[in-house]
Design a protein around this nucleic acid. Sequence first.
DNA 1: TTATATTTTTAAGTATGCTTAAAAATTTTT
DNA 2: AAAAATTTTTAAGCATACTTAAAAATATAA
Lengths: 219, 219
Amino acid sequence: MSVAIENFVKAIYNNEKHDIANTKPGNIASKLGISSAAATDMAKKLDTKGLLNYEKYQKLRLTKKGEKMALNVVRKHRLWEAFLHKTFDMSLHEIHREAELLEHETSDFLAEKISAYLGNPKFDPHGDPIPNANGEITTKDTSIALINANENKDYIISRLISTDKEFFEFCALNGIKYGNKIAVKKQFKNSQMTQIIINTNTIVLNQDFTQIIYVNEIN
Amino acid sequence: MSVAIENFVKAIYNNEKHDIANTKPGNIASKLGISSAAATDMAKKLDTKGLLNYEKYQKLRLTKKGEKMALNVVRKHRLWEAFLHKTFDMSLHEIHREAELLEHETSDFLAEKISAYLGNPKFDPHGDPIPNANGEITTKDTSIALINANENKDYIISRLISTDKEFFEFCALNGIKYGNKIAVKKQFKNSQMTQIIINTNTIVLNQDFTQIIYVNEIN
DNA sequence: TTATATTTTTAAGTATGCTTAAAAATTTTT
DNA sequence: AAAAATTTTTAAGCATACTTAAAAATATAA
């Protein structure tokens, strides 16, 4: 299937995870950097291909077949991220940029080689789950956004939901990394700031960051 | 630059190495699996882009700029082949098939990472030279086709010029591999067969194979 | 609930990269 | 050197994936 189609179903899939209410042509279009008109055209075409259900003015809903295609692309994307991070020690921003291209030119055969080489990982370096070869996600996500974490509790960083270079540079400098431990010291409700301790350093994060850093409480 | 353009200049580049007399639209078209008309159109377009010189009914000649683009793609192709062969132990046929796709979606940045990881190799697993980051091939090829080798001499296999799956399967079964040593026992001039000894096994090859296996004499 | 703003759809058009068919030029054979 | 065969070019057309502009529908606000 073409790159445009793979990116379209992927964008719908990702959108459904975060903003299901707004999975409409205009929203998908802005995420893909194309016009709303182009997105409407594509949605009609993919409906005839059985990849999604399109009804005028309604939100776009992937069919089972469309979701399977999206998960296949997502799998390849996240496998490449994990592989590039491990093998070449590339940053979270770099691996995303490269995986965005490689994901469309990766055979299922090669994806299995990469997965086996890595020991069939269940998560990529952002903490996002890697679907298995059947397009199933077998892990359960119990993480919460850091903005909702409790004061005086310890957490493990479990996801960094972003594609922004500056954010990842900040993370790299401050030890904010998938799997690392942090202590939440104080939530400043008024100013929407969060004070945490990481590697003995105290830092204060604003809501731009605490809404995209996800954590799991340590029991 | 688009995949179609990259493949076009690459095909011209490769053709010039083996069959310079016939670097015309029809020949390039058949190598790319497109019509002659499409190749003529593309040649005109690439002329205006300064990638090649096109004159009606004349052979196509890459400009410096076009050759540089071709070498950049060839570099990425051969780096991927070397990498996939080493890291995932994939066959010569498999690495070619995957590299054919990945080469177009590989940034210069990633190519450098792959090259450094491999120790900046000068040859890929087929024995083809890998251009450096400036698009230069600094190695000199002194190999000859096995069909032209001398009887009772020892050689090192230096190139396997093919993309054929069956050929590579035969090679894998018989130890015919880049860098391996063989002894040429007899050239049967009439039947165009060549008898060689490899790993203590005696095998006889016909001209289909002895024209694409290249060797260097051991002094 | 009516006016306003926003979003979605339709319509017309464009660039790329191909196709087939026929005309033109070149190459090969006799 | 003329005839035959082959190759290249031209011309017209198509599918994909976009664009902009305007019309239609929906969502929001007064």
